[in-house]
């Protein structure tokens, strides 16, 4: 059964919040394992894991280098080269924070990679203010791939006209201008056309909106969303009540 888009986003969001609030090794590792397992089960692993790696590898390396080598608060020194001291506390801090962040990133990516964007837009646009947010979301997600290829075509066209990227900052700024100005011009022009077309079709009017896309929802999922949000809130309140527990 396909989950309602809001249910999967609520599940991802509240899991991320609860993991951050729990701040414990076992919870973070369990969430990481579950997110990776679910991504394989949902068939999203092939797209999701490279995206996660691009984000997490530099982040984890940066954390390890930063706290592993320089942690002035650390007391148990494992090794020392000049000003750099490897301390047990620093390594522990880096690893704990890395696990916690990896869990949150993986869970949120799982949510966004498995949610169906057309369904999400259909759901959002039936609810007041969200129609505008839904438009921005859907139009960004569909513009992105189109624009990457257009930027490539502009670069090829300018190279055919004799664009050479010269060394030094002025040369590069000039090259940037050659490519960015045509891109921006075409985008602004299209946006103007789109605005006129959208307004002619009543976009931004306050009246009722009919959607041709039916998104299945069930009372169970409605309750599940409420419970998930309450659980996330409870986790935040509990953590603020006992700021140092488990840390």
């Amino acid at each position: 059964m396909r989950l309602h888009p809001l249910t999967s986003l609520a599940a991802a969001g509240s899991t991320a919040v609860i993991t951050t609030a729990a701040a414990s090794w076992p919870v973070s590792l369990t969430v990481i394992a579950a997110a990776v397992g679910l991504s394989f089960a949902q068939g999203a692993a092939r797209r999701m894991l490279p995206a996660a790696a691009v984000i997490l590898v530099p982040l984890v390396l940066s954390l390890l280098a930063l706290h592993g080598l320089f942690f002035p608060e650390g007391t148990t020194v494992l090794a020392q080269w000049g000003p750099a001291r490897v301390t047990a506390q620093g390594l522990q801090f880096a690893l704990e924070r890395a696990a916690q962040l990896s869990a949150a990133v993986l869970v949120l990516l799982l949510g966004s990679f498995t949610v169906s964007v057309p369904d999400l837009v259909a759901v959002l646009s039936t609810r007041g203010v969200n129609a505008r947010f839904a438009f921005v979301l859907a139009s960004t997600l569909t513009l992105l791939p189109a624009i990457s290829s257009r930027l490539e075509r502009i670069r090829q066209a300018q190279e055919a006209r004799g664009l050479v990227i010269r060394p030094g900052i002025p040369g590069r700024v000039a090259a940037f201008r050659w490519q960015a100005v045509p891109l921006l011009l075409s985008l602004v022009e299209e946006a103007g056309t789109r605005a006129a077309a959208l307004q002619a079709r009543g976009f931004g009017s306050a009246g009722p909106i009919t959607s041709y896309r039916q998104v299945l929802d069930s009372p169970v999922q409605r309750w599940a969303r409420v419970v998930l949000l309450l659980a996330a809130l409870a986790a935040i309140v509990f953590r603020l009540w006992q700021p140092t527990a488990g840390a």
């Binding site: 505008r132 438009f135 139009s139 960004t140 992105l144 985008l187 946006a191 959208l198």
Partner: peptide, 24 residues
């Protein structure tokens, strides 16, 4: 609406130009 339709353009520029300039 004329500003609203520019927002997706801006978001795409943030992402695409950011990566493009970042790499060159």
């Amino acid at each position: 609406v004329s500003t609203l339709v520019l927002i997706p353009v801006a978001l795409v520029l943030n992402i695409v130009l950011g990566q493009f300039v970042g790499s060159t």
